[in-house]
Design a binder for these strands. Structure first.
Lengths: 249, 249
DNA sequence: CGGGTCGTTGACCGTGATCAAGTAACGTGG
DNA sequence: CCACGTTACTTGATCACGGTCAACGACCCG
């Protein structure tokens, strides 16, 4: 095993992995497929037989209502596993699309994931923890879209992305590239591209953030966090309940 | 084992369970605790060491913002497992409260849940499926709060509850008791109690629903489902990827 | 150069929030 | 049995946040 992949790096941030588990994870990532910016990878309603690990680039899942309204339900970064929600259904519940940069995914079949539970109880419990961590992230987003103002929502989104990126990337300072259009940001937070633009402008005027091109700088983390009562869900996970690392044999 | 509990009944709706797994599940439900209407069971920020199975009654998780705004993030019914989102953190991320009826829960420690992964790979994969099914439900709610009108949101909530209750209860016709105040409904859907009242009135005038006391009747399922592009997430789950039922030994 | 997408800005509008008053149902204690 | 306080729900008047529509500029790529 040359060096650790994003996924292994991310999981090890929460709990140590033995060589056997790492080997298994590396196996999931052995095949790669590339997609160009904006490519549709999974069509909503298609048979969901594969899962993916994100190797590089960003992607998102969205749902389209019949009159064109769109809701982005999940944004994926390198090291994320794509396909948890679809694993429980035989057809995809949402469309998966690449963001504004090139995307490399590692596909593997659902059944291989099921096999993990037999031989790698500790690893599968850790993946379970990741899955329920995502539930908490969903709750946060529901709280944002359900109860927060436009400015609070944008603070939330930016802080959440920063927290997420810090686990794998080493973000220099408080600045990072945001390969999302304002329409995509709006579709994530339940607002229009126009109001995203106006609110970002306002936040810039208030010295909360700075922008240059696709790059954002969070200039006042403290105040932003206060505004949306932000909690970092990525820094630590409780793994004390995981079973010991022995599996079969 | 006299007769199946709600949880076993719910899980068996998706995949057959062997006697050994059923025994283990029954063990999780051996202890019971009762709560009166409105009782707070888990305070946000308290140490999260226990999980619960709902035996009877309803409960919900909510998050309170500092200025009093509230978002209900999850409503639990009999047969639900409470505590998945908290399993990944050592402190609870939300407050758990009983609804307007008596509530009976079966508490069990987190660590016992971790143990499932070692001896019951198939059962733990099934619980994994339930956890990711919840992710899909969260996505649906995000789509509702982010992109839908008040009337569409209420259609969604009522249809979702009906779909959920049908798995365990046998709902007679399309009518069921809704032990939630309009404030609670609003806090679930990101709207005010006042507008919930006005919108329900409107839906009654349009012959979509009928109300008497805490009981609702869905009078035009077809039209309601069209309005919010509803998908039943409870009727079936894909369990084809689960590992075979053998575990250790 | 032309066409595309993306972001910005302004004028106007509408859904749903806010505020407030009133009704109904309930349990409590006199 | 009735006064009461409380909570839930209803209804109306008003307001504001954010949506809609539209025009324009910046940038990119062919």
């Amino acid at each position: 095993m040359s060096q650790d992949t994003c996924l292994i790096q991310k999981l090890q941030h929460y709990a140590p992995l033995d060589a056997d588990s790492k080997g298994k994870l590396a196996e999931l990532e052995k095949e790669t497929r590339s997609f160009e910016p904006g490519a549709v990878i999974i069509e909503k309603g298609s048979r969901s037989e594969m899962m993916y690990v994100v190797q590089s680039g960003w992607a998102y899942h969205y749902v389209l209502l019949s009159d064109g309204r769109r809701q982005i339900v999940k944004i994926h970064h390198p090291g994320d596993v794509i396909g948890f929600p679809d694993i429980a259904y035989d057809k995809s519940n949402s469309t998966l699309q690449a963001c504004a940069n090139d995307l490399v995914l590692c596909p593997f079949p659902k059944a291989e994931f099921g096999g993990l539970f037999v031989r790698y109880p500790r690893l599968s419990a850790l993946l379970f923890a990741i899955a329920v961590r995502d539930q908490v992230l969903f709750s946060d987003l529901i709280t944002a879209t359900g109860r927060m103002s436009a400015r609070e929502r944008l603070c939330y989104l930016l802080l959440e992305m920063r927290a997420r990126l810090r686990i794998t990337d080493t973000i220099k300072g408080n600045s990072f590239a945001l390969p999302l259009t304002q329409t995509e940001i709006g579709d994530t937070l339940g607002m229009t591209n126009v109001y995203v633009s106006k609110t970002l402008k306002l936040m810039e005027d208030q010295d909360l953030i700075a922008r240059s091109g696709a790059r954002v700088t969070l200039k006042d983390l403290r105040q932003m966090a206060d505004l949306c009562e932000f909690h970092d869900r990525h820094e630590t996970l409780d793994t004390s309940w995981l079973p010991a690392k022995v599996g079969l044999d």
